[in-house]
Write a protein that binds this DNA or RNA. Structure first.
Lengths: 246, 246
DNA sequence: CCAAAAGTGTTCCTATTACACCCATGA
DNA sequence: TCATGGGTGTAATAGGAACACTTTTGG
């Protein structure tokens, strides 16, 4: 055992990492929200080549002593100004020439926030773009991005593909995982929640069964408060509660 | 607003990819099969430090002009001797000190084969180990590995964690994705298929509803042939057919 | 003829869907 | 009082689970 350790120590001392092909690892984060039937994401203007002047997902190189998730959190904080949101690893993209500078493998993450919070952090070098999904269900493929005026926004790198995987993942998880709540503020009505689900899925849902399914899930807690100034009967406001283990 | 800009400016100033210490990207592949209620995976003996003499998943560095999936296929071919099997990206592991040599980010893949085919490629520097899953459902966590004699096998690196994610992923996908077939030879009985599912899930399934569910899925095609020499009524042999788009 | 496992028809149960109707609010 | 959407009770339906039963082989 000591022998092995000694051998390993000697090996590590002689080890030269530079003989391996240079490769960079980045993390790109798709920050997504849903509002009035539309999915949005936050983009950052690139100030340097490649793709200078184009819009890209918030992202950055992984630092030597930083975990992948820590990189994602840092990027979200520094480039998008948000923290404490739902964040999950998505997929890793490593096509040889996806970055013209050098070989860059990027680990894609996606994060979910409510629309108001996303809008609060737009400005300067960042903007929002709407996701238009040109495929149904979980077919998959890149998404199209359009700006406020309906103009096409062509993202840098393979970020349209990354966003496509985000939508596919969200559609897949929505049924069995409480990610819909992540797109809403702290309190929300059942209709808000249903709209968020419909926006992600790109299809309409049955009102009654959706209500019952959500209430039966045990993930919702009535706040006792109601909407105000809504021009019709005000809906109950609910809060998301983590399902407690039995 | 100005605050955000300042952050971004600092961010840009700090980021010069050339300054960074080298980072390596590897691909590790968990080749899994199921037989008589047990999940197995193929391990390779490490001939060099770190973890010299220990057992690890087949893996290797991503080459400069090689996609991640190409690396996975090469590793499967060169180290495990199999090709043309189900292969899917799993998750990317990048904890800072998971490899003592240097910072190594590894993209985990998993591949599925039938047990006979896995056994055919064992020998020399490779062995099989049984996966023992110490958690129920999709709780998650590392798995334990045991050899033929029941002895514990401690894998190198974080490979026990990777295998844990494999099992969790398989359990999640089994219901809505035709991955069960990938664990079986070209023709198989419905009981074989049910056993494979039960092995992955770690729980027993209802015979009748499993049969009907599988036959209704349209993914199975009766070959017209039957088992031979089985000591009881021989079962129909089925074949997996890709669901054709309407 | 018996044991063992394949395969099938029927019923039960549960969860979703669909429909109908009442409720509460602003205008 | 009307329009609008929230909220609820009830019936219809689909799919899985459970059970009983028949079928087909080897011994």
């Amino acid at each position: 055992m000591a022998r092995v350790k000694t051998n390993e120590a000697r090996f590590l001392g002689r080890y030269d990492p530079r003989k391996y092909p240079p490769m960079a690892v980045t993390v790109d984060v798709a920050l997504v929200s849903a509002e009035s039937g539309r999915l949005h994401t936050l983009l950052v203007e690139r100030r340097e080549a490649p793709f200078r002047g184009q819009w890209a997902l918030p992202g950055g190189f992984v630092r030597p002593d930083e975990s992948l998730e820590a990189t994602a959190k840092r990027v979200l904080r520094d480039e998008a100004g948000v923290h404490g949101v739902f964040l999950e690893q998505l997929y890793t993209f490593g096509a040889p020439h996806r970055d013209p500078r050098m070989r860059v493998v990027t680990v894609g993450y996606y994060a979910l926030v409510d629309a108001a919070r996303l809008a609060r952090h737009v400005g300067g070098r960042t903007r929002m773009a709407q996701l238009v999904v040109p495929w149904a269900g979980e077919t998959g493929g890149p998404v199209e991005l359009v700006g406020d005026a309906g103009e096409a926004v062509v993202p840098a790198f393979d970020h349209a593909d990354i966003l496509g995987v985000v939508v596919k993942r969200m559609r897949g998880k929505l049924d069995y995982s409480p990610i819909g709540f992540q797109l809403l503020p702290d309190t929300f009505t059942l209709r808000d929640l249903q709209e968020a689900h419909e926006t992600v899925l790109g299809s309409v849902l049955n009102k009654d069964s959706f209500r019952r399914r959500m209430l039966a899930s045990g993930l919702l807690e009535a706040t006792g408060e109601r909407q105000e100034d809504v021009g019709h009967r005000p809906a109950e406001l609910y809060r998301f509660v983590k399902k407690s283990a039995v």
